[in-house]
């Protein structure tokens, strides 16, 4: 027992020392899963002598839930999508920075500079943007896939083999696009139609999952699945014979942003990190890894050829891209009910 205690105590002491020894500079990132290359984090850690820790989430709503559950004050930066930046701003979860604190702010592409969810970019910088629709396995189904019917009214071959993103924001928005109703509608008939649509479509869906969205397509667990364009491209590159659709009814576009969180324990390092991500080479490294599109000037020389020519990243002209909107409490309650009814 004595020896056991001794071993235990020394193991504890060692691990405590390990934390103390490296506690000099830290950065705590809360990030989407599989979205930033480890090499880039290592590069930042080496360049600025900072110990970087990364936690991941799989939906904007999960990010918000975790911060509300007491994680605010533990992380320095997070990567919410456009509408979630707006919500977090209203919830008072964001800190602001001055232009002096972000020397490379000028690198931001003009169209991503004065955005509605953060006018003047006071709390956030653009990270990557992309779209959300779905990919279909061409071995299973060879017909027309440029329609949201694939998900909500699928052909025989795909019934029961569809994975849907496990997030109300994007799944219900795509359903609204399918019905051609406005987002955040207060019209009761339209909301009822939305509820009926997803309730009816559920029988065709095999699973709900966001973090598994790529794996189900690669492994063949699903033959079609809602997915983000870059993630769909990665799935294709990992060997799935799939095609990403830009449906005629419309599709979702989004811009993810790195935000400075309120009560960030390492505000200085957070700013360094955000500035670091505005360097074209680093923004390009994220693009090369995650297969989305950077919101920073001058990334082209650093991009891989595959990214430039990928069908996933080059939407056809004249489509109907829509940003997800942040609804007010009254409507959001109905959306929550629809989603809960759907999941149970």
């Amino acid at each position: 027992m004595k020896n056991l205690l001794k071993t235990g105590a020394s193991a504890l002491a060692l691990s405590l020392m390990a934390t103390v020894a490296t506690a000099e500079g830290k950065l705590s990132i809360y990030h989407w899963f599989e979205y930033i290359p480890q090499e880039l984090l290592d590069k930042f850690a080496a360049e600025y002598d900072v110990e970087v820790t990364l936690d991941t989430y799989d939906s904007n709503e999960a990010l918000l839930a975790a911060l509300k559950a007491g994680k605010l004050g533990q992380y320095d930066v997070a990567v919410p999508g456009d509408y979630m930046v707006e919500i977090m701003g209203k919830e008072g979860m964001l800190d602001t920075f001055t232009d002096d604190e972000m020397p490379l702010k000028g690198n931001i592409l003009p169209q991503w500079m004065d955005v509605g969810f953060d006018p003047g970019r006071k709390s956030s910088i653009p990270y990557q943007w992309g779209s959300t629709s779905f990919s279909v396995n061409r071995d299973v189904y060879s017909g027309d896939i440029q329609t949201t019917d694939i998900i909500f009214n699928p052909p025989e071959e795909l019934k029961g083999k569809i994975n849907v993103l496990d997030t109300a924001g994007e799944t219900l928005t795509l359903a609204s696009i399918h019905l051609g109703i406005p987002q955040c509608t207060t019209d009761r008939e339209q909301l009822k139609a939305l509820n009926d649509l997803v309730q009816n479509a559920k029988q065709y869906w095999a699973s709900f999952g966001s973090d598994v969205a790529k794996d189900v397509l690669v492994s063949g667990d699903a033959a079609a699945g809602m997915i983000w364009n870059g993630f769909g491209m990665k799935a294709r590159e990992e060997g799935a014979n799939i095609e990403y659709a830009y449906p005629a009814q419309g599709y979702i576009v989004w811009m993810d942003n790195v935000v400075l969180l309120k009560d960030a324990p390492n505000r200085e390092n957070a700013l360094k990190f955000m500035n670091f991500l505005l360097e074209p080479e680093n923004a390009a490294a994220v693009t090369n890894y995650a297969r989305y599109t950077a919101g920073v000037k001058g990334v082209e020389p650093f991009l891989e050829e595959a990214v430039k020519s990928a069908p996933e990243l080059n939407p056809p002209a004249g489509g109907n891209p829509q940003f997800v909107q942040a609804c007010d409490e009254e409507v959001q309650k109905v959306y929550d009910t629809i989603w809960t009814n759907l999941k149970k």
Partner: peptide, 14 residues
Amino acid sequence: ETLPTAIFGAVKQG
């Protein structure tokens, strides 16, 4: 992270 939570996170991606 502990080993199970790290494995769970990783296994979601396949």
